[in-house]
Design a protein around this nucleic acid. Structure first.
Lengths: 253, 253
DNA sequence: ATGTCTTTGTGAACGCGTGCACAAAGATGG
DNA sequence: CCATCTTTGTGCACGCGTTCACAAAGACAT
């Protein structure tokens, strides 16, 4: 899970479990697809398959929102789209700022998934004076000096940090001081924020490391299987290097 | 949590809980920072603070790896870096391919966090013939036709998908058929893969939506607090544009 | 109206993850 | 060598999340 919450003691906001909230966007996307194909109703089984989850889980998730289904029939697609959108707060307009317009920041500015979901890129901000005025995704980049003014003029409450690691905390502090209360952090750093501010972290490197762990484990099991069946030698890896690589220097208790 | 696992019934790989594995990269980063500053040892309390977690949790996490600390002193930084790296499989070289060299793919190719952690970008692949040969991050982009050959020649087992949503599943299928067994997916789609293949998902839009939910909730509470202040309006939750917006058309059971 | 059939909504059980609190272990000083 | 002090490693309890399994609810046909 690439999610890094920041000190909210498992608060179930208004009775909706955090895990459920995290899945609502998934359902919403699947439903939007159905809606575009003019599918009128959908069963929990079908929708669950489209969203890649268990149908029981989906039904329980929806039960936290209310009784929006019809037994024997399923869920009305349009109605459910509306209910979930409203629950997530996507029926209103969320101006966001992106700070740090490097490769990643530019990618985010160009990302279509924002505008289609009620998010509006209010401004792109970078510390490099050479970037100022240069348009990215049709929006002129503004200098960091303008940060506080931009936030307050546009009523921005959500900020995206795509700066290098070193700049992240200072930028974060300025965002918070200016009134931002939700931060999506792409910089590989642990951000410290006051109470009441939400931080979510996306870390590309961490995701890859988790994959590497499982990959290594799979390679190890495969090697063990090969040792049992010395014939089927797939993938000439290296010289056998099992899951432990070499011998641990300290014996576990 | 930007994490989307794919059908692994909470398998605790080799006794290490999934939640712990997800935190190991976090510890590793904090430790690397200490190592660069030549700090010899660190206590669980200090390291936990640097990694942004609870110290008890950190100690329990490390206990799954073995007894690598010294009571009364703490943990040896260098030794711990090595142990965690080995556990995550970062002592070996992981060639990865990035498919889909748009804004995001380019950002990933330029991302420094990969190379420094045992990952090597073996190839950049794109379906657009116009991109072929063009260097991105110093690596010439190759055409999709070469995909299978690249994977097998380089022994690639980890693939990164940064294509548009529509192209993701076909690309995924080809990657898997060619031998890739771990996939990091940035496309906003649910990927279907055979057993034995790991998928992790990073979805920028979903993270923002989760933030919007909490933001809305905060705004609602704030409004409720304001409503309570002026004349102490008890339970005025119906006419107020609170967290519910408008009145639900269906009454919950 | 009655029965059958489909699908929801949920009570209950279970398992994982988290955090507390403390005993064990080792360092350090006298 | 003994006492004290620091910090680890972990047993235990608790709460959240997941899954099962089924009763209730409604559609639909007769």
């Amino acid at each position: 899970m690439a999610t890094g919450r920041t000190h909210r003691p498992a608060t179930r906001s208004r009775g909706i479990p955090e895990a459920t909230v995290a899945r609502l966007p998934l359902y919403l996307r699947a439903l939007t697809g159905l809606s575009e194909r003019s599918v009128p109703t959908v069963s929990s089984e079908e929708l669950a398959a489209a969203a890649g989850v268990n149908s029981a889980k989906l039904r329980k998730d929806f039960s936290y929102l209310g009784s929006y289904g019809t037994r024997g029939v399923g869920y009305d697609v349009e109605y459910l789209v509306y209910q979930i959108s409203r629950e997530l707060g996507l029926t209103q307009d969320w101006p966001v700022v992106i700070v740090g317009i490097g490769n990643l920041g530019a990618a985010l500015a160009n990302y279509g998934g924002f505008a289609s979901r009620g998010f509006r890129v209010a401004a792109l901000i970078d510390a490099d004076p050479a970037m100022a005025g240069k348009p990215v995704a049709g929006i002129p980049v503004q200098h960091s000096d303008e940060l506080e003014k931009i936030i307050s003029d546009n009523g921005v409450s959500i900020g995206v940090i795509a700066t290098p690691a070193g700049a992240a905390q200072p930028v974060c502090d300025r965002l918070v001081a200016a009134g931002v209360t939700s931060i999506l952090n792409f910089a590989p750093t642990v951000l410290t924020v006051p109470d009441g501010v939400d931080v979510r972290k996306v870390d590309l490197s961490i995701e890859l490391q988790i994959l590497a762990f499982h990959e290594q484990r799979k390679a190890g099991e495969e090697a063990a299987a090969e040792a049992a069946h010395p014939v089927a030698a797939h993938r000439g890896d290296s010289t056998e290097q099992g899951p432990d690589g070499d011998v641990p220097a300290v014996m576990p208790a």
